[in-house]
Design a protein around this nucleic acid. Structure first.
Lengths: 223, 223
DNA sequence: CAATAAAAAAATGTATGCAAATTTAAATTT
DNA sequence: AAATTTAAATTTGCATACATTTTTTTATTG
């Protein structure tokens, strides 16, 4: 399928978004339309439009004058994101438990099994990816379009956070089985239970990340 | 404070957004950049950028070819929105109950009193506005920036829904005291209770709106 | 007539020019 | 030198031109 709508804008958008979430553009950095257009060989119009989109999506913010700045990551933002995630994933888990089909349950189980495989092989980047798949699939299976959009927004920030923080393997050790517990509750069609499991999982994950605030300073995280 | 960043784009954006949420542009309608730019006297560039923003915010969607369409309102969307709202407002209520200051409680009470006044005077448009204020304030007091952004998005759709559906005064009669109950739980710093009250309130509001689906067809709502 | 093809018209996406705003550098004053 | 003013350079937002794509209209075929 060929992209026919705003092909250039979409290309710069994807390019810049990738650089931002992978921290090649660091939080706080100022992005200049003219520089970007020269650097990447697009005219200023699509670059400008891409930056506006990225700002509206929360990856950039307005700086003094007319500039765009890569949005800083603060401990407060991380905390807010985890709280918000918990709220929507709890809802999703309950909904899914009450409506999920057998083949959909199989999809979930395939993903956790993949997580387990990646964990066993110590492929922690792959593990992170399948962890993301797990949570996205949960939202997707809820069928709630609004949650889906919100989750997409959050995932971009989540990826930046992921790069900025350390991944304690000890936490993954705890975290891995938690995902199995969630799937089990879904399989039992236990809405309340699934909700509770998701709540626990994300409460722990949140506490783990925030605890890193004490263990020294992290380059790129403010407060 | 003068708007210095993208003044034209912001102006068209605000203009078009107002027309969309007030249903002067109906769900399903196709918006043509060239027409709008001639009609309102802007060049195509700011109009185009405004449309892209509105699409990213969910008030427009991509149509065949390169067109923009005012996003249809479906019963499914209404249902999704209420579910999503419930999830984030429950979280907000709990947070607020646990952290709220005396002066903030006063702010909440001022708003419900205003609601009551509007209700007593049968100013139902004003009532709707203060109802909106109530829920926005709850989110605002939670201090969660992510929830705040999400709520802003939802409110635009909510306003369109409001215009498309009937407001049963009988429901307002029930609804009014529910807001007082929420404030009371906040005043008692009862997080769990506040959450429960919000849940009940929104569950009922959701059911009320969706029940209208049976009572005949509503122009502009699909499914 | 309906269906298809061809031609004309309209609308879009992007590049670019330009005036206005902003930033940086230089000059001037304390 | 530090602070202030002035001047130069840079960058932006918007209007517009133009090539390309999409849509509408007209012509042609079965």
């Amino acid at each position: 399928m060929v992209e026919t709508k705003d092909p250039k804008t979409n290309e710069v958008y994807a390019l810049l978004k990738d650089k931002i979430v992978s921290l090649q553009y660091m939080p706080g950095q100022i992005l200049i339309v003219q520089h970007l257009s020269e650097k990447y060989g697009f005219s200023r119009t699509p670059v400008r439009e891409a930056l506006v989109r990225l700002r509206d999506e929360g990856l950039l913010e307005d700086a003094d004058g007319r500039k765009f700045r890569v949005k800083p990551i603060t401990w407060k933002l991380i905390s807010d994101i985890y709280d918000a995630r918990k709220a929507i994933e709890m809802l999703a888990a309950q909904t899914v438990a009450e409506t999920v089909s057998v083949s959909q349950l199989q999809e979930m189980r395939t993903i956790v099994d993949e997580m387990q495989k990646n964990y066993d092989n110590h492929n922690f980047n792959q593990y992170f990816q399948s962890d993301l798949n797990f949570h996205n699939k949960l939202i997707e299976l809820s069928g709630n379009e609004v949650l889906k959009n919100w989750m997409d927004r959050i995932n971009d920030q989540q990826q930046r956070i992921r790069y900025l923080t350390t991944n304690l393997h000890s936490r993954i050790e705890q975290s891995m089985p938690e995902h199995y517990h969630i799937v089990e509750k879904l399989e039992q069609r236990d809405g309340k239970g699934a909700m509770e499991m998701v709540s626990q999982h994300l409460t722990l994950a949140r506490a783990d990340i925030l605890s890193q605030r004490e263990n020294g300073s992290f380059f790129g995280i403010q407060d």
